[in-house]
Nucleic acid binder design. Structure first.
Lengths: 207, 207, 207, 207
DNA sequence: AATGAATGAGCCTTCATTCAT
DNA sequence: GATGAATGAAGGCTCATTCAT
């Protein structure tokens, strides 16, 4: 807002700006290749050609093919989670919150089709380091979400259910629908059916 | 060899019995490898070692690596579908049918964990021939299921919804739960929460 | 000698004969490449071209580049040791034995120049398995040699010296000479100077 | 900082002092890497990390990886040779000289284990320029040594032998012992066995 | 039907070196 | 003098598939 904003000074040197741009272009190329060819079907050369850079440069920044896949995944998850929590905090009550979950899922998957598809596809094969980072991200997310919903359950606005069933009940149908839509099975986009799934979600967990 | 042996006459010649056993052992080995190493991560040698046979033998029976994956997939799908339809036909009304879908999903996934997991993986590149066979299987299944449920919708026992939403609404939550359970995220088995999901499914589509 | 000789029946199937021939030709090619280009300077392709076989075939038989180097080394050492022990056992007394060591070293290095050079060059980089096999070979050899010489030391025909000094005293000079000769520094072959070194060896350890 | 500092005036400008320190730290890092990883197994990055400087800096000072290896080798040889000649010149007669060679070899190898090990490795590919410099160094050394010993041979204090056999006879055993000790095969250090090898050396060449 | 040696295209990765800042 | 991102040729190795026995 002001001239002396700290974020301005922390923007980094021109070098790091260039580095970020290079990394971003590689990640974009990788996502596109993974979508078209599959994670295993994509070669470093595919990515390198599309990112218009050298093989060496990729390895300089990411270390390995796995390193690219991990960074793409972790970044994506973190961004999705952050947005979800932000949406929840705008809500006033339980019903609005549950419907917001379904709605955000719809919106985000529609806006970031390829990334959404990629995030759906994997839960294996990560390095020890990446697994640890992922666990951290996941725990923070779960903590934030449960902190949000717990009061509604206690207040009786939502049913008391086995803890592991909430996510499948609320997100399961829309997730399955989005998955099928991303795979090209359906013609009607998520946004046009979101109310159906929002209704079902609220019905499944309301008090 | 002998004339009156029932098993001989129903299963074919002794040669084909040995062939079937060999194929079955290869398929079992393949399923285990796919589960542990991923479809792409599994090599012919992995399968061959575990099936305790030669490379040549595998190629003799399946033609290619893809051939194994396809046969495993198509067999599995066909068996799952057949069982589902059989369950439906025992039902008297809409609610019992919807609950049967959830229940069968639970039971089958619990009894055939690895196969269920394999059938969930959508990233298999099938040959043209296999795609055709799969399409056939799928169409037969969809036809049977819709034939079963259509009268209930017409009679008002079930809501009239966009056609593509029924499956996600009914199976989505339990599928998501099973997927997470298969990945080791949950400790409570599907059977112990099936009523929760059966309730939600019926609530989502009842008239 | 006779038709029914056991060695004839143990010669193995045609397949293993072919396998042995293939392995031998790869080892010969590798030795030549290692000599000309250095162990690290040699590529699999160099070996494969010279052995006139495919890359895959090499990996089928040796598993890795290191596998070739190890087999070459272990085979060579074992053959050298076996010959040395055979020579010793022909000797009558201490002096003849000491002179035989120098003589055998001369002869063998002259007959197997390249292999001798290769065996001189390495004592690192082996796999755990190869290290174990090498240790076994070495211990057997040391045991055989010391068993042979111990009585001479006890009988006073040879000096009592720190155990680790015998080998350098007896073999050191001729080894160093051979090493330099193999590197092309000298023009006079080992055989023409063996008496000088045999004299020195005996002088150094005689009682 | 001050004008009259002797080290400043003898070592040149402050800039060259820093340059020398940087070069020395790179050479030290290189030697350690070569020892641990082998010459071929060491990468520029290994050295750069250990010397705590940038890749560009190394290339600024040494031009290439080979340049580092050469400088290390030539410096080491020159220092070894200079010390050996200095020792010889302190001796009064043939026996003292021969024993001095063995003694110096022991002392130097013990004090500079890693460098001694590196100088032993004969498999370095030098540039034409380095080969020329090495030849010069070697010739100067050989000339000085033979100039020193020639009178003793003429005077009959030492045996007349083929010219190429002196070095193996005198230095061969101790070299072989040191080599084995550097490789970790022996527990008793060179200094504790030097008399044994000095005796053997003198016996082998005395008149 | 079974066997396993042979094939070679293609993959991931390394690494010495250059060069703009 | 220092820095480190960029380069791309080259290397070791994998693996689906073929085929002679």
């Amino acid at each position: 807002m002001t001239v002396s904003s700290p974020s301005a000074s922390s923007a980094g040197s021109p070098r790091s700006v260039a580095t970020k741009a290079r990394k971003a272009s590689v990640l974009a190329a990788a996502l596109d290749c993974f979508t078209r060819l599959g994670t295993d079907g994509t070669t470093i050369q595919d990515i390198q050609r599309q990112a218009n850079c050298s093989i060496g440069s990729i390895y300089h920044h990411f270390g390995s093919k796995e390193g690219i896949a991990e960074e793409l995944f972790l970044d994506g998850i973190a961004r999705f989670n952050k947005g979800m929590v932000r949406q929840l905090k705008k809500c006033q009550d339980a019903e609005e919150s549950v419907r917001a979950v379904v709605g955000y899922y719809c919106d985000w998957s529609t806006r970031h089709r390829e990334l959404a598809r990629y995030l759906h596809s994997r839960d294996i094969d990560f390095s020890t380091d990446a697994k640890a980072r992922l666990k951290r991200i996941h725990q923070d997310y779960i903590a934030a979400v449960f902190l949000w919903f717990a009061p509604f359950v206690e207040a009786g606005q939502m049913r008391q259910l086995p803890i592991d069933t909430y996510v499948p009940l609320i997100s399961g149908p829309i997730q399955e629908y989005v998955r099928r839509w991303l795979s090209g099975h359906h013609n009607i986009g998520p946004k046009q059916v979101r109310e159906v799934f929002a209704d079902a979600a609220w019905n499944a967990v309301k008090g």
